[in-house]
Design a protein around this nucleic acid. Structure first.
Length: 401
DNA sequence: CTTCCACAGGAACCAGCGGACC
DNA sequence: GGTCCGCTGGTTCCTGTGGAAG
């Protein structure tokens, strides 16, 4: 294909009008089928406009059910009102994603940044950092909203100490007030919490139901109107995206991704319309890309454990922890590197399970012990692709994969 | 009903690192 | 330049356990 042809294709294939509208972090003007949640959250948070401290809120719901979007949307509106009508109170919004900021220190560090308080990003004790945060906060009549998105990560990694402190902070403040909004995908999350934290943090609770297939289709249609040129979507496309995403508990984010990638594939192929087959390709591509990226970014030993799982699987279909460990030790010897302990490898297998690279399930085989049955959850091609950029593994990959 | 395998997974600890503080 | 701090990614030691075999 000549350059002329490629450019010609690009020009003739007008698929997208504004593809930004399909990005996961875009917060749209309206959030269909979340009216009830929006109203409830607005009712809870509205006192902020008059400078009163709203109750803390806890929001539950599976991924892609609009928790983050609704929260940002409501806070944005409240902030706009507060700017216009309230006197003497500074509304401040701190949004923290605890998947990245999963330690007390980092959370406090971020909070200080939101208050324009300069602090070192390591070196201080957490207690000192907390004192500085409180001091900075209490200097003015601030009303601070702390949004802790995916707060379960914070608690799993660092415990609920910081939550406890944050929820008890108000009595110690003379001028400022803090209101906390915790968001989590993990419906069993409360179990990890100290009951005292549970009661203060969960002053109000909101549960977000997953979208149904029809609701997803509505959302997609709404966004598609803004994102795509008129008439480029085949009529089967939106229902298909919706039903593929609904298979995984009504995840709107996945549905939107699917639609965007399908559009990109159609554009790349020079098709004038987005068709059903583009959606199916998109589905496979998203799965594979995710797997490849994860494998690429894994540390050496985690890769070796993955290869071991693959090798055992190829021999006999599925693998136990013990078999994987033996195979893994063999790989280490061939590379003349020190092997990790079985205890650690057991944890690595759990990590791989969380990443969706393998499926691991504890099973008891009676007299023959209790172990984990491990199955590779990604395609061989994705595995090879993810491994081939690592020069340390080239010999192993070449001959065994 | 008891035994006993092959691990799971908790607890405590450690080395090394980057970085702020004094 | 020594000290302190928290994080990461490991180790060692350990107790707990589902369920087929006996």
């Amino acid at each position: 294909m000549s350059i002329d042809e490629i450019i010609q294709r690009m020009l003739s294939a007008r698929i997208f009008k504004d593809r930004e509208k399909l990005r996961p972090d875009y917060v749209p003007e309206s959030l269909p089928h979340r009216e009830e949640e929006i109203n409830k959250l607005a009712e809870i948070l509205a006192p902020a406009v008059k400078g009163a401290r709203p109750s803390n809120v806890f929001i539950y719901g599976l991924p892609g059910t609009g928790k983050t979007a609704v929260t940002k949307y409501v806070l944005r509106r409240i902030d706009a009102f507060a700017r216009e009508y309230s006197r003497g109170v500074n509304l401040k919004l701190a949004y923290i994603n605890c998947r990245n900021e999963n330690t007390s220190y980092r959370v406090l560090f971020n909070l200080c940044n939101y208050l324009d308080e300069r602090v070192p990003f390591t070196g201080l004790s957490t207690a000192e950092l907390f004192r500085r945060f409180v001091r900075a906060l209490d200097r003015e009549r601030n009303l601070l909203f702390v949004v802790l998105d995916e707060v379960d990560f914070l608690v799993k990694v660092s415990g609920d100490d910081i939550l406890y402190k944050l929820t008890r902070i108000n009595p110690d403040l003379r001028n400022a007030r803090v209101s906390i909004i915790g968001i989590t995908n993990d419906l069993n999350f409360v179990e990890y919490l100290d009951p005292r934290v549970k009661s203060t943090l969960g002053e109000e609770e909101l549960v977000f139901r997953p979208y149904t297939t029809e609701e997803l289709a509505d959302i997609l249609a709404e966004r598609a109107r803004q994102a795509f040129c008129d008439g480029v979507l085949d009529e089967a496309v939106i229902p298909l995206c919706a039903s593929l995403a609904a298979r995984e508990h009504g995840d709107a984010r996945r549905a939107l991704d699917l639609l965007r990638v399908a559009g990109e594939i159609a554009e790349r192929e020079g098709s004038s319309k987005v068709l059903e087959e583009h959606v199916r390709k998109a589905y496979r591509e998203i799965e594979k890309d995710r797997a490849v990226e994860v494998v690429k970014s894994m540390p050496l030993h985690t890769k070796l454990v993955t290869i071991a799982a693959y090798l055992v699987k190829r021999r006999k279909g599925e693998a136990t922890t013990g078999e994987i460990y033996e195979t893994y030790k063999g790989l280490c010897r061939r590379l003349t590197i020190d092997e990790l302990t079985q205890r650690r490898v057991s944890d690595i297998i759990n990590e791989l399970d969380m990443l969706g690279i393998v499926n691991a399930k504890v099973t008891s085989k009676g007299r023959y012990g209790r172990t984990k049955i491990v199955r590779l959850a990604i395609s061989d091609r994705a595995l090879v692709e993810g491994l081939k950029s690592d020069p340390r593994l080239s010999s192993i990959v070449a001959e065994s994969v």
